[in-house]
């Protein structure tokens, strides 16, 4: 299979990679770029563990071809903290025990951040529906919802 050369921006930095035409963006991130923070829980868009944003849109990176990323701006969990400074969501997740095994956590953080950028003050219901595509088997979601609300309040300056 003929490989394709792709130029993108990942977490603000220029990135180039080659991939086969059938390779997903998730495979590229994990296997070619060493960005293993995005997880493959299903490979079919049903679990959200591979969530990233492409040009500002929240997507499952397992449902995007690497080749489609040409010219795109991609953000992953690895780009969420600024240096040593954690994003308020990341901090809230730790402080409010919103993770147990942690494997769904990167996807949930990316998804929650994407929501708060659109809607800084979501209701619990809006938040639960927004995150419905991010499966978590450990927590029962309770502490995740609380932690996102804590971070949202902090980000609003409340």
């Amino acid at each position: 299979m003929k490989t394709i050369q792709v130029s993108t921006t990942i977490n603000g930095d220029p990135a180039e990679f080659i991939c086969t035409p059938d390779e997903t963006l998730l495979d590229v991130l994990r296997n070619r770029l060493g960005l293993t923070g995005s997880k493959e829980g299903c490979g079919t868009g049903d679990c959200g563990a591979c969530s990233v944003t492409v040009n500002g849109r929240l997507v499952c990176s397992c449902l995007v071809l690497g080749a489609e990323a040409e010219g795109a701006e991609i953000s992953t969990i690895e780009g969420m903290a600024e240096g040593e400074t954690l994003h308020p969501l990341q901090r809230a997740f730790i402080e409010h025990a919103a993770l147990q095994c942690g494997v769904c956590t990167p996807g949930i953080l990316v998804a929650a951040k994407s929501l708060l950028e659109k809607n800084p003050d979501p209701t619990d219901e809006e938040l639960r529906y927004w995150l419905a595509g991010n499966l978590c088997r450990c927590t029962g979601y309770d502490k995740i919802i609380r932690a996102v609300q804590v971070a949202a309040a902090e980000m609003r300056g409340a």
Partner: peptide, 9 residues
């Protein structure tokens, strides 16, 4: 293990 898990590390 919190920071490792929220940063994808």
């Amino acid at each position: 293990d919190g920071v490792d898990k929220v940063t994808g590390r």
